[in-house]
Structures are given as structure tokens and as C-alpha cells.
């Protein structure tokens, strides 16, 4: 017993990364999700090498070509061309840059800002809490699109303006969520005990309270990612976001809408790419959320074992 109890954790610790990969592989959906996320990131990074055409290159003779498997489709344009003869595939590959950057950075900034405000308000309580949450209330009631137009008008359009503006209009939901959890976690005996044995507020907040927030934060951030991709599309469509010749998936979906009935591929392929991205992030984040929770992690393991046993007995019966 003594040997086995000391042996098992050391073996797990020795191969931390390999162990994590093995555990991820148990959840095939999450593994596929991670692979797709990595592929999308690589695609964005190496866009100039992969994309068959310049995404902005127009060709009037090759307008609105359908994808390759359709009657009029050609191998020159795998996913067809748009109303200006631009290659849809190349635009998707290049658009990944703007979309992924804006989505990821905005999510990160908004989540960080919102979490910090929420932690502060929930932990400090009292007047600080009231003040911070009133600021949140004011910001929430302020029409987002108006703020966006105002800032863009002042700073000029561009990816980073967009990131800043979208972060500014999206952090409140995090603050509200986090503040609620923190003010209830604060009352739990283990947090009171941590304060009692002399942990400084910083340690209590980041070591004892923050880990409780991982799972709701991940869930919310993914929901928000989709929102931000769509918000970016809306702002770009209005002409205040990503500026042509640069492109983004959202912009392509928005501008392809006018051709929906004669060229469905303009909306469909960028749209599908957004779906695939969000779905992959969801699958992987779900795995990550369970892994961050020791109890859930054991439960997942036990469920996998039960499934294996069922397969074995079914195999034996057949």
C-alpha cells in the first residue's frame, strides 16, 4: 500500500505533459477541438504561404464563381469567388487573422478587466462594491454601438481600435458574474479560515477565491467570443471596423448577405468557419473546465471507465 501510494503520483508528475495529452485523448471531441484550434491559428499565422490568391485581388472576369463541385465551378477557386471576383478561400484564410486576433484579445481584455473589477467589488464589499457596481450599471445602460461610433470617430478605424472598443463594451457581464460568485465564496468557511490564519487579501483572492471562478469564466468567455465575432462583423459592415482591403470572417458574412440568393457560398463558408471555430473552442474549453475541477475530473474518469466496461461486456456478448 505504502509503495503504491507514493508510486502513483510521482509517475503522474514525471510525465505531466504526456499525462495531460493522454487524458485529452480520452475525450476525442476535445482532442479534435484542440487540433482544429491549432490548425486555425497556424492558418492565420502562415496565411501568406497558404492562401492561393491575394484576398483583395479582384478579377472582373471571374465574378461569383461557385465552388469547385458545382456545375460552373473551377479548380482555380476551390470555394468560389465573390461579387468582385475575389477568391473566397483566400479571404477565409486571411480573415482568420483579424477575426482570431480581435476575438481572442478582446475576450482576454474584457475578461481581465471584468474579473478584476468583480473581484475587487465582491471582496471589498460595502461602499466600494456599491460604487463599482453602479459604474457597471451605467456602462451597461449606455448604448454600445453609440460608444463604438464615438471612439472610432475619434481614434479612426482599425483592428486595435476595435479591440479597445469591444473590450470597453463587453467587460461588464464578467464583472457582474464574478462579483456575485466572489461575494458568496467570501462567506465560505475555507475563505474565512484563510483570512484567520493570516493570509493577506491578495493571497485570499488569487489563491482561494479565483480558482472557483475558472469554470464560469471559461463558459462565459466562450459565449462572449461568439458575440464579439458578430459585433466585429456588425461594426465592420458599418465601415468602422476592419477596413478593406483587409478582411475578416464577420465582414465577409455581412457583405455576402446581399448575394445570399444568387451566391450562397459567400455567406456559408465564412459562416461555417466561425461555427467550426466556436464549436472547437467549446469542446476544448469544456474539457479544460472539467480538468480544472478535481471532483469533476474524477467523475469524468469514472464515467470513461464505466463506458469501457460496457463496451467490453457488449463485445463479450456479441
Amino acid at each position: 500500500m505504502a509503495t503504491s501510494s507514493t508510486h502513483v503520483p510521482s509517475a503522474a508528475a514525471a510525465s505531466g505533459l504526456r499525462g495531460a495529452i493522454a487524458e485529452l485523448w480520452q475525450d476525442k471531441a476535445a482532442a479534435v477541438g484542440l487540433v482544429i484550434i491549432l490548425l486555425l491559428i497556424l492558418m492565420a499565422v502562415f496565411a501568406p504561404l497558404i492562401a492561393p490568391y491575394d484576398p483583395a485581388a479582384q478579377a472582373i472576369t471571374a465574378r461569383l464563381k461557385p465552388p469547385v463541385w458545382m456545375a460552373r465551378g473551377t479548380w482555380d477557386h476551390l470555394l468560389g469567388t465573390d461579387n468582385l471576383g475575389r477568391d473566397v478561400l483566400s479571404r477565409i484564410i486571411w480573415g482568420a487573422r483579424a477575426t482570431l486576433t480581435i476575438g481572442a484579445v478582446t475576450c482576454l481584455l474584457a475578461a481581465t478587466l471584468g474579473t478584476l473589477v468583480g473581484l475587487w467589488a465582491g471582496f471589498a464589499g460595502g461602499r466600494t462594491d456599491t460604487l463599482l457596481m453602479r459604474i457597471v450599471d451605467i456602462q451597461v445602460s449606455f448604448p454600445g454601438i453609440f460608444l463604438i461610433l464615438l471612439v472610432v470617430a475619434m481614434l479612426g478605424p482599425g483592428i486595435w481600435t476595435l479591440v479597445a472598443v469591444l473590450s470597453m463594451t463587453n467587460w461588464m457581464v464578467y464583472a457582474r458574474l464574478i462579483r456575485g460568485i466572489v461575494s458568496s465564496t467570501r462567506q465560505t468557511p475555507y475563505v474565512e479560515a484563510a483570512e484567520l490564519i493570516g493570509c493577506k487579501p491578495g493571497r485570499v483572492i488569487f489563491r482561494h477565491i479565483l480558482p472557483n471562478l475558472v469554470s464560469p469564466l471559461l463558459t462565459l468567455a466562450i459565449l462572449e467570443f461568439t458575440n464579439i465575432v458578430l459585433a466585429e462583423a456588425a461594426v465592420s459592415f458599418l465601415g468602422f471596423g476592419v477596413q478593406p482591403p483587409a478582411t475578416s470572417w464577420g465582414l465577409d458574412v455581412a457583405s455576402g448577405r446581399d448575394y445570399l440568393f444568387i451566391a450562397w457560398w459567400l455567406v456559408t463558408f465564412p459562416g461555417l468557419t466561425i461555427v467550426a471555430t466556436v464549436l472547437s473552442i467549446n469542446l476544448f474549453a469544456n474539457w479544460l473546465r472539467v480538468t480544472a475541477d478535481p471532483e469533476e475530473r474524477e467523475r469524468r474518469f469514472a464515467r470513461a471507465e464505466a463506458a469501457k466496461r460496457r463496451r467490453r461486456t457488449r463485445g463479450a456478448n456479441a
Binding site: 501510494s5 502513483v8 474518469f301 464505466a306
Partner: peptide
């Protein structure tokens, strides 16, 4: 009768 309960954990 002869009840057995097991817990599947990552440690065994």
C-alpha cells in the same frame, strides 16, 4: 447480500 461498491479513481 454480498454488496460490493467500487469507486473508480484515477489512482485506481
Amino acid at each position: 447480500n454480498n454488496l460490493e461498491v467500487n469507486f473508480d479513481t484515477r489512482a485506481g
